[in-house]
Design a protein around this nucleic acid. Structure first.
Lengths: 253, 253
DNA sequence: CGTACCTTTGACTCGTGTCAACAATGGTGG
DNA sequence: CCACCATTGTTGACACGAGTCAAAGGTACG
């Protein structure tokens, strides 16, 4: 499961998928699980983390109903989490970007309730949960971080609940674009120009809309000069306008 | 905040709102936080738990943006959690029945992101979070339980996401009724006859529907002999039929 | 007993889904 | 290198479920 292929010299050390970089050296350690752990505590965390080969597009990281073993931090690429209903439909419950942690749905019932699928070539850090638990008993900050991580998942799920319950197609899509924009910005990437890692179908599924509606809304946003849309590449041309559409005004008093 | 009024003799000891019952004696300890803790560990948990006077209908347990101090286990009554959007709308994100724990949304940002409001007279056990964290470092089972509790909140939020994203008004309402029915059953109450603690407005808000739609669907369910609806009292007359409407078939192979 | 709130029901509207046709893209093999 | 086919995305016409508006009936609380 975790064979290393990082023997390909120079290139590998530069590559984002490179599995040899430890938490201490990782460019994501300011936003990922290790935030504000002490240096030697980071090493202890690092010791239990396993880094395998990258996942290819479409590959499963884990599947719904599989026994729960680990949570995963995204190192590179994007992973989607999908909930399968008892009548066989799929619901995308989240998109996970580098530095974000997924798999915590599995803790309660000791099996995953979601499946996780790579949307593009992606690398992850595997965090075996029982070892993380043991370590948490010794490192209060780690325990605290993990509680916060799970709480963050709860609040973001509740944000999505609100979005689905209260907002129109335009508002939902504007909100998603702004969320991705913000998260890119936090990773020192452009907030105004980026490539969507997911298909229109994934967007629609996530936001409770059909493909056609997603397509139409993006076209409309382009016509009204909020965006430039070129396939999966998005340029936000009017950030304030987009925030207005999403009901997320920057200033209003 | 936690003044005791349980000095009213006999009656108080029988009353569900009675604040003197400890975790060890509580009729909910099989489904609440103490599950499978050892007897003396339960006492340690019990030591940090604070039990105040009951909340009256409409009273706030905590408010959005207040500093986060504690999570709360419902002892009696029902509490709703409400998320306030930045344009002032309210979204009900959950209904909490006796034995269920709320407030975990506050951990991530150190303030509550929801408000919690009593739907009827309700009593809660307050669990100061930092003391619970300290205790968790000593009691691995407690740490584990708390991770599981938060994971359960995540999975149930994701169930709601799926419901809102994929299901019709009929399916949403049938699902909610079945959820309440099941949770009542787990509390040794009737699965087929119960009183809804929330208003039509709360149901609609929770399920992303208008009051009118909720009312119409309930009327339709009654006409098709799935339910008997008498104000807030619900009798499920055709459990299998209701499950079929909710796409939750009992057997289908 | 009156007033305010909650619920029900009806008529109409509108946003999003559905169905369908077509365009664009990307990967594969000749 | 290009032709082919599968997949993905776009656009239009139409339908339908749930929202909106409006009015009236019920219920609860002071």
């Amino acid at each position: 499961m975790s064979e290393s292929i990082a023997t390909s010299s120079d290139n590998a050390t530069k590559c984002h998928h490179n599995p040899t970089v430890s938490c201490g050296d990782c460019r994501l350690n300011a936003i990922c699980l290790p935030i504000s752990l002490h240096v030697d505590d980071i090493d202890k965390l690092d010791d239990i983390i396993q880094r395998g080969r990258p996942l290819q597009k479409g590959e499963y990281l884990y599947r719904s109903n599989e026994p729960f073993q680990s949570v995963y931090a995204v190192r590179s690429g994007t992973i989607k989490a999908v909930n399968i209903t008892n009548d066989g439909q799929e619901q995308v419950t989240g998109f996970y970007l580098p530095g974000e942690v997924l798999g915590m749905d599995g803790i309660a019932q000791n099996h995953y309730t979601n499946s996780a699928i790579a949307l593009e070539t992606a690398a992850v850090c595997e965090i075996p949960f029982s070892r993380m638990e043991d370590l948490s008993l010794q490192l209060p900050t780690l325990q605290r971080h993990f509680f916060q991580l799970m709480s963050k998942e709860i609040t973001s799920d509740q944000q999505l609940i609100t979005l689905l319950s209260k907002n129109s197609a335009d508002e939902r899509i504007a909100s998603l674009l702004l969320s991705i924009s913000t998260r890119n910005h936090n990773r020192h990437l452009s907030a105004t120009f980026f490539r969507l890692p997911m298909s229109r179908a994934d967007i629609g599924n996530y936001l409770g809309l059909t493909i056609e509606t997603v397509s139409r809304v993006l076209s409309r946003f382009q016509k009204s000069d909020l965006l430039e849309v070129n396939k999966k590449e998005i340029t936000i041309k009017d950030m304030d306008g987009l925030k207005r559409v999403a009901n997320m005004e920057t200033a209003c008093g």
